[in-house]
Design a protein around this nucleic acid. Structure first.
Lengths: 166, 166
DNA sequence: TCAGTTTGGTTTCATAACGAGACCATATTG
DNA sequence: CAATATGGTCTCGTTATGAAACCAAACTGA
């Protein structure tokens, strides 16, 4: 049967994964963040099959993560550029990268050294933070009773006073 | 041909996606964060096929994202619980959820209302932040020259003085 | 105690997605 | 004008997914 899709899930993680949760889409977005814009460049950098790249780019455009622009004199060259929606995947990508750097460090390389362009300072590690900036683990958060149906699409535990995470 | 894998990529995002970048793994991790531990519960909550669930759980255990524990009297019941590595996907999951809430809001529901258990305060929006806590966009960061090879697995732009993102 | 249920799988099979490579039409370059 | 770059599409063989059936080892309840 068909691969399951989550367009209509009431879990926003599922809906998000529906748009960028396959093997290639987030990597395409990552490369777009590094400045790649052309079909052939994505293809060369990622080593993705051309038909799959076509499909992914079209889907990302359809989902308003990228937009396609004609750039040639007579409209023969295209560029794929991030939309605001696409650019806002930045925290997702960086969180994933820091996780990868920490738990699967590159055999050869150093972890990502991203810096504030203005001050030259390295960025903070990504974290879920409370209002005062303190990093929170899964165990240090909860979902208020009123929102008990929100977090899970179909929770076996819904109905508790306070829904924990962990 | 076989789906491409990224075990040996020197891009940590690619390596991370290799472990949790398929349709189901992050959703399994999400549900584990909400407290699900049993095979049948994952199966019921996610609506995933049993053979696929088996495969994904095994892979997550293999990659040290979950660990499998015998809990029955005679070892007949298992629990799948998050490891530290798995728990640290928290920022990734929450970033993805906030992105989904913002750009694909639930038809019916409110966005995630996660709170600090200690203070009751809502959490901050996920963001890439500079050392002083200021949120940074893709355009406001750079990678120093020395690390120019790190960000991309095979950049067409490597060699510039400062590598931008966007 | 013994049938039925829960749990955690495995097997089989049809369908969908993927990857490689061939092919193609339209610019652009030399 | 020929060669190449660009952005695709098409076909075909391989792989992954999903549904359902099947299974064995606890556990449950009457």
């Amino acid at each position: 049967m068909a691969r399951k899709r989550f367009d209509d899930s009431n879990c926003s993680v599922a809906r998000a994964l529906n748009e960028v949760g396959d093997w290639w889409s987030l990597l395409i977005v990552l490369h777009a963040m590094y400045g790649t814009r052309r079909f052939v460049d994505f293809q060369k950098e990622l080593g993705i099959a051309r038909n799959i790249l076509c499909d992914r780019l079209a889907r990302l455009v359809e989902n308003d993560v990228l937009r396609k622009e004609e750039v040639g004199e007579h409209g023969s060259r295209q560029e794929y550029r991030l939309t605001d929606k696409g650019r806002e995947l930045f925290p997702v990508v960086i969180a994933l990268r820091q996780w990868g750097d920490k738990w699967n460090p590159a055999p050869n390389g150093a972890p990502l050294n991203l810096r504030d362009r203005e001050t030259g300072q390295p960025i903070e590690p990504m974290a879920v933070r409370s209002a005062d900036g303190k990093p929170l683990t899964v165990r240090e958060v909860f979902v208020p009773e009123d929102d008990i149906e929100t977090p899970l699409q179909d929770s076996a535990e819904a109905g508790k006073k306070q829904k924990n995470m962990g």
